[in-house]
Amino acid sequence: MEKRIRILNVLLVFGIILVLLVFIPLPYYVTKPGLAEPLRPYVKVEGANKDKGEFMMTTVSMSKANIYSYIGTLVNSDHHLYKTDEIMVKGESNEDYQFRQLRYMEESKQAAIINAYKQAGKHYQVTKNGIIIVSIIKGMPAFDALKLGDVITKINKREVDSAKEFTTILSSAKAGTRFNLQINRNGKTKNVSIKTKPFQNEPNRAGLGVSIVENIKLSTNPKVKINSEEIGGPSAGLMFALEIYDQLEKESLAKGHEIAGTGTIDNKGMVGPIGGISQKIVAASKSGAEIFFAPYENGKKDSNYNEAVKSARAHHLKIKVIPINSYHQAIAYLEKLK
């Protein structure tokens, strides 16, 4: 009887340890190859015809690390480990992080629409209305004065709707410079007075401690709707732009091919780098993609393109990696496809 009790106690302790290994979080995040999904179900252009072939966006799966997933990164080269401060802004909660990523996705979709409609010669109109705060650094002046989602409409009584303009005004100010901001919070106008402060990791540079995106509204003809659900981040911008253009044009742009890729896109069509490309190309290949667009970064040695090529070789993937600097380069490549 005593022997049975000892065995049960040992099993109970062992079970508790296993539970703790699963549920005790570590100060890390683990990423691994996510999905490569066709974009047509997400993008609907009014009156679009169904074409052969597909454009696909790629994702990376990310989760809080525990002991098991931490060990997994040591034995699986497709699983990567990141410190929390490499993912999150100081003082940022999981909800704050998700808000920021969804706003980046929204900005990315707007840039994709602008580029596609411009390329197709279709009508679109942009209405600007200030800039939106998407993250705030703990310990900086904005942390106690501003909130995520606040829309800054004026700075020192001067209307502002350009992120570049706002950043330029702040970057030229010394520490301790006071700025009067007019903001819109939940539909109500509010005035906030705030001083700049040196950044902890950059003592020679002062600011408020916010990240921003432009608050714009788009109207198009024909109408377009992008339902990205809860997918966050700006990395699908290039592929959204290609899918929208494909639906706007009568001729098929994919021409029967399975085409995946990644990269941010701005309103001028420039394609920028993203994180996790070595994992995204694995996801694309598993989903049957033949071609993969990767940001070339004007030939940088450690560009996304070079990282994607290295990953494709290491995994013996039968996928063609194409270097892309701009949206127009991607269109030109596709127009020459057989």
Results as ranks from 00 to 15, higher is better:
residue 10 V to E: 11
residue 214 E to R: 06
residue 47 G to F: 07
residue 7 I to M: 08
residue 46 E to A: 09
residue 38 P to M: 02
residue 291 I to V: 04
residue 214 E to I: 13
residue 250 K to H: 10
residue 322 I to E: 00
residue 126 V to C: 04
residue 297 E to S: 08
residue 22 V to T: 13
residue 303 S to L: 04
residue 94 N to G: 15
residue 127 T to H: 12
residue 193 S to H: 08
residue 33 P to A: 06
residue 256 G to Y: 02
residue 312 A to W: 03
residue 143 F to Q: 04
residue 33 P to S: 05
residue 232 G to N: 05
residue 321 V to K: 05
residue 164 K to Y: 11
residue 338 K to F: 00
residue 252 S to F: 03
residue 16 I to Q: 04
residue 28 Y to A: 02
residue 204 N to A: 14
residue 226 I to D: 06
residue 312 A to G: 11
residue 104 Y to M: 15
residue 128 K to E: 09
residue 280 K to V: 04
residue 13 V to T: 15
residue 270 M to T: 14
residue 166 F to H: 07
residue 235 S to L: 04
residue 159 E to M: 12
residue 63 S to W: 10
residue 201 N to C: 02
residue 184 N to G: 03
residue 225 K to F: 15
residue 206 A to W: 03
residue 25 P to R: 05
residue 213 V to N: 13
residue 246 D to Q: 00
residue 47 G to A: 08
residue 155 I to C: 13
residue 125 Q to H: 13
residue 57 M to R: 11
residue 332 A to L: 10
residue 176 G to S: 04
residue 203 P to F: 04
residue 184 N to S: 13
residue 117 Y to F: 01
residue 91 G to H: 10
residue 285 S to P: 09
residue 114 I to C: 13
residue 111 A to V: 11
residue 328 H to L: 13
residue 79 H to T: 09
residue 27 P to E: 03
residue 155 I to S: 11
